[in-house]
């Protein structure tokens, strides 16, 4: 399998604080790669570096064989990387349809207005917001806004989708629906890189997981491997042998 995203030796400092330190990993085409770690581990910073919002101090980002290190976010979208935000950013005084049309107009395909509107209507249907297309974005609930974020990112027709805590703040029903949506997205051929705190969700969705702590990569591997890694457990819970105690079934 090809790797669609390669992150090599990425480091980012903010003044004296090292937010991300020498992080390297690859994301294979068609996989769902999870990114977990305690708060402040540098996960969103890493996302921001991949999609161009921050410039890495060191290291390279390669997407589909192309070096995108230091590219601005709008260039990165044109190449096929779209993202959602942890704290949703709806375009409040525009309708849902207009919101998603922006994604379609300025994404990878750079469609004209008419074609973009049609594509946007379809994407809204896919995420289940089709019947609210003409509502104002500000009138949605948090769950709706999260779906809108995903719809907007999908409308850009990305090859790689970065999802930043897309489940946070949702109730169990909404979570189940969103998990299913993520699976559908992957099944349609889009590779997914997702940050998540909800352990069950990330365990069941991800093909592989990368763990960050204090800016460094702590572990990488299949979900069941990573969850038994003592360093990972210590980072989250503090006591390595708790895992055994908690997962013993006798």
């Amino acid at each position: 399998m090809n790797s669609i995203l390669e992150v090599r030796g990425v480091t980012k400092r903010f003044g004296g604080l090292v937010a991300v330190s020498d992080v390297s990993f690859s994301l294979a085409e068609g996989e769902i790669l999870g990114l977990i770690g305690p708060n402040g581990a540098g996960k969103t910073t890493l996302f921001n570096i991949v999609n161009g919002v921050y410039k890495a101090d060191q290291g390279t980002i390669t997407f589909s064989g192309r070096d995108i290190t230091g590219h601005s976010p709008d260039k990165v979208v044109h190449l096929g990387v779209a993202r959602t935000h942890q704290i949703v950013k709806p375009l409040n005084d525009l309708t849902l349809l207009d919101n998603v049309t922006v994604g379609a107009c300025f994404g990878r395909e750079y469609l004209d207005l008419k074609a973009a509107r049609a594509a946007a209507a379809e994407v809204l249907q896919q995420v289940g917001l089709g019947n609210r297309a003409h509502m104002m974005a500000r009138s949605l609930t948090i769950a709706g806004k999260k779906r809108l974020e995903v719809a907007r990112a999908l409308a850009a027709q990305p090859k790689l989708l970065l999802l930043d805590e897309v489940l946070a703040g949702l109730n169990p029903t909404e979570i189940a629906l969103m998990i299913e949506l993520v699976r559908k997205i992957r099944d349609s051929g889009v590779s997914v890189f997702m940050i998540e705190h909800l352990m069950q969700a990330i365990m069941s969705l991800s093909d592989r997981i990368v763990v960050l702590n204090l800016g460094r990569k702590l572990a990488e591997g299949r979900p069941d491997e990573v969850v038994h890694n003592p360093d990972v457990v210590e980072a989250y819970l503090g006591f390595p042998d708790i895992v055994d105690k908690l997962t013993r079934t006798d």
Binding site: V53, D74, K89, L91, L94, C105, F106
Partner: peptide, 15 residues
């Protein structure tokens, strides 16, 4: 309009 609503989001969307 996207810039008006949220310039950072607009850039991330490709504007």
């Amino acid at each position: 309009f996207a810039i008006r609503e949220d310039e950072d989001a607009a850039v991330v969307l490709g504007v």
